[in-house]
């Protein structure tokens, strides 16, 4: 997806980092096994987070395997995967497919069209297995497109669409955990959408393209508004996490929710500030 929901490596122990890495590699391995090279391209940190989260919540048995991968063929690494990883892999395909369709609709990008075509048959199977999630992704991608075309400026409303989409993805099964997971997914989705829009703001303004932050841009306290807004989203997501009775991999999950998600934001801010310092950008 967007890659914001990731770890802050500096604050993890080596062991915790390697464990996180093993989930990432396990997801990559599963995507490759089920969906080949194209499948692997749908891998992201955001879905890796989901994988770690659900694995910790359900505490289902995980296979552990030493493997090599195309990107780093010289070193062996550990892969961890289980039923939850299979589910997460399917969600990766779903999200990427609809993103491709949406991009193709917007920019007529040939790459997006090819990507979508390559994934279509898999999506059909996934849709049969997970109709609720597939409907959620399909409907919300369409709805978001509509809202953006209409120039909707209400932050809650627009971000809430991605929120609702992610909320359903986070609900693995219709069981006793679904509401907490839905809440977590919803607010994380809102965070991700708003963060992505914030990062693209300058570019969108230049190109005259839609951006949900455009209306607020001229405010003197714009930067404070952005940070406060993003914090409000993460705080709700974190709240939901704290309510879940998760006792495994809590350091990794908390690292992501309280620190890692801010990595790109801080880097983007540093970049803007240094450009300002050089008298550029603003």
């Amino acid at each position: 997806m967007f890659g914001y929901v990731t770890i802050n490596k500096e604050d993890l122990t080596i062991r915790e980092y390697e464990r996180y890495h093993s989930f990432y590699c396990g997801l990559c391995h599963t995507l490759h096994k089920k969906y080949g090279r194209t499948g692997q391209l749908t891998l992201s940190y955001d879905t890796t987070f989901l994988c770690v989260l659900l694995s910790a919540l359900y505490e289902e048995p995980l296979k552990v395997r030493e493997g090599r991968c195309i990107v780093h063929p010289l070193t062996k690494h550990t892969e961890r995967y289980g039923a939850v990883t299979d589910y997460t892999a399917d969600m990766c395909i779903l999200l990427t497919y609809y993103k491709f369709l949406d991009d193709w609709k917007d920019d007529k990008s040939r790459q997006s069209r090819l990507g979508a075509d390559a994934l279509k048959k898999h999506v059909d199977e996934i849709a049969k297995k997970y109709p609720r999630q597939e409907r959620a992704v399909r409907d919300n991608v369409a709805l978001l497109s509509e809202m953006e075309a209409k120039g909707e400026t209400n932050l809650d409303l627009v971000a809430g669409v991605t929120g609702r989409m992610l909320a359903e993805i986070f609900v693995y099964r219709a069981d006793e955990w679904q509401d907490e997971l839905r809440y977590l997914g919803f607010y994380l989705g809102k965070y991700v959408y708003l963060m992505d829009a914030y990062e693209d703001l300058e570019k969108d303004l230049k190109k005259g393209q839609y951006n949900v932050w455009a209306k607020e841009r001229e405010r003197k306290d714009f930067e404070a508004l952005v940070e406060n807004t993003l914090t409000m989203m993460m705080s709700e997501a974190a709240r939901a996490y704290e309510r879940l009775p998760i006792v495994t991999d809590t350091e990794i999950l908390r690292n992501i929710l309280y620190s890692g998600v801010w990595l790109k934001y801080r880097l983007h801010r540093n970049k803007l500030l240094s450009e300002e310092g050089k008298g550029g950008a603003k």
């Binding site: 802050n8 620190s259 801080r266 880097l267």
Partner: peptide
């Protein structure tokens, strides 16, 4: 909840100024 979040967030380090994504 924002305040609770920020309090917990203080346990983690800051991202370095020179770093790039």
């Amino acid at each position: 909840s924002g305040q609770r979040y920020e309090t917990r967030g203080k346990n983690y380090g800051e991202v370095g100024a020179g770093a790039t994504w």
